[in-house]
Computed example of a mutant assay.
Amino acid sequence: MPPAHPQIPAHVAIIMDGNGRWAKDRGLPRREGHRAGAESVREVMEACKELGVQYLTLYAFSSENWNRPQAEIDALMSLLDRFLDEKAKDLAKQNVRLQAIGQLERLPAKTRGKLNKIIANTAHHDSMTLVLALSYGAREEIVAAAKSLAQDAAAGRLDPETIDNQLFGTRLQTCEMPDPDLLIRTSGELRLSNFLLWQISYAEIVIVKKFWPDFRQGDLFAAVKEYQGRQRRFGAL
């Protein structure tokens, strides 16, 4: 059962880690770990919707993941295609909006086309927003935002003295959503892996030792319950 408490994070972000190790422990190819992780995505989406979470951001494919063996990249893109095919009707039925962040132009044309179509078709949905971080890197996002501001300043469209945290945030890909309240990382690793570095400045972080394919609704509820027990100070005493 979900934790009974009114303090529900508006935005949950998850680093879905451990697919490869999950597969290795079972003597399976890495792609089977990614395939198994898709079931965890389904359960977490349902759990977040049940709790009333407004935004769920999943770190699905990092900019560094392009350095993996081509066979694994191809398998991941194939799984993403299948996920988009299977989720299109579910997202419509559940009134869930889909968005994506990252260097989407690097995705295969077929995948990008499917993604853009679902984003357009679900734009009016308002029960929850699912954000897929694809070909995403936080440093790249921050550099792009800085370049954008620098170009405007050089062209005389912007006074550099007016640049502050709020203005900088408007140049990030997440500018239309709240910063994450809760960041969950699976597999027990204690690093951020270039994920939403600006946005998670004051997020509560919960580390779960389970590999992502073993993460289920109960684990999400437990993470939210731990979040509810934290006192968020945002730098104050």
Rank of each mutant, 00 (worst) to 15 (best):
Leu172Arg: 00
Asn194Met: 03
Leu183Arg: 07
Ala222Tyr: 04
Thr57Leu: 12
Ala133Ile: 08
Gly18Ala: 02
Glu86Ile: 07
Pro9Met: 12
Gly33Met: 04
Asp85Ile: 13
Ile73Leu: 05
Arg139Gly: 00
Leu51Phe: 04
Glu32Phe: 10
Gly113Thr: 12
Glu105Lys: 14
Trp66Ser: 08
Ile200Pro: 04
Ala150Met: 10
Ala236Val: 04
Leu167Gly: 04
Gln94Asp: 14
Asp159Asn: 15
Ser193Val: 10
Ala47Val: 02
Ala4Gly: 00
Ala109Asp: 15
Pro9Val: 13
Arg185Ala: 06
Glu46Trp: 01
Val224Gln: 09
Pro9Glu: 14
Pro180Glu: 11
Lys209Trp: 06
Ala155Asp: 11
Leu51Tyr: 03
Ala38Val: 14
Gln151Met: 08
Arg232Cys: 06
Leu56Asp: 00
Arg230Gly: 08
Ala47Phe: 00
Thr162Ile: 14
Asn65Pro: 14
Val53Ser: 01
Lys24Ile: 10
Ser40Tyr: 00
Ala109Pro: 04
Ala100Leu: 08
Leu91Arg: 08
His11Ser: 08
Ile15Cys: 01
Leu237Asp: 12
Gln228Ile: 02
Glu64Lys: 12
Arg26Ser: 03
Gln199Val: 05
Glu176Ala: 15
Arg191Thr: 07
Glu189Gly: 11
Ala10Arg: 15
Gln151Asp: 14
Arg30Ile: 10
Arg82Trp: 12
Gln151Gly: 05
Asn116Lys: 14
Gln199Phe: 00
Leu183Gly: 09
Val44Ile: 12
Phe221Met: 01
Leu190Thr: 15
Arg21Lys: 08
Leu76Asp: 07
Pro180Asp: 11
Gln199Trp: 02
Asp126Val: 04
Ile205Arg: 02
Gln228Tyr: 01
Gln199Asn: 09
Ala13Asp: 07
Ala154Phe: 08
Asp25Arg: 15
Leu190Pro: 06
Asn194Cys: 05
Asp179Phe: 00
Glu141Ile: 02
Asn19Phe: 06
Asp164Val: 09
Ala38Arg: 15
Ala47His: 03
Thr174Cys: 06
Val208Glu: 15
Ala144Cys: 09
Asn19His: 10
Leu132Arg: 11
Ala145Asp: 13
Phe195Lys: 01
Gln228Ser: 04
Gln151Arg: 14
Tyr136Val: 00
Asp17His: 08
Gly229Arg: 07
Lys110Ala: 15
Asn116Tyr: 03
Ala133Lys: 10
Arg21Asp: 06
Lys114Leu: 13
Arg68Thr: 04
Lys110His: 12
Ile163Ser: 05
Arg171Tyr: 15
Ile163Glu: 05
Val53Lys: 02
Ile119Glu: 00
Val12Lys: 05
Gly156Arg: 06
Thr174Gly: 02
Gly52His: 14
Ile205Phe: 13
His5Trp: 01
Arg191Val: 09
Arg139Tyr: 07
Lys87Trp: 13
Leu84Thr: 13
Glu72Gly: 07
Gly18Val: 03
Leu51Asp: 04
Leu220Met: 14
Asp159Ile: 15
Gly188Ala: 09
Arg171Thr: 08
Leu167Ile: 13
Lys147Tyr: 13
Gly37Leu: 05
Arg82His: 11
Pro160Phe: 08
Gly137Arg: 02
Ala203Gln: 11
Asn65Asp: 11
Val206Leu: 05
Lys225Cys: 03
Lys225Asp: 13
Ser127Ala: 15
Ser78Glu: 15
Val143Ser: 03
Arg216Asn: 13
Pro6Asp: 14
Glu105Cys: 00
Gln7Ala: 11
Met128Asp: 03
Tyr59Leu: 04
Leu237Ser: 12
Leu197Trp: 01
Asp214Met: 02
Ile163Trp: 01
Leu56Trp: 00
Gln7Ser: 12
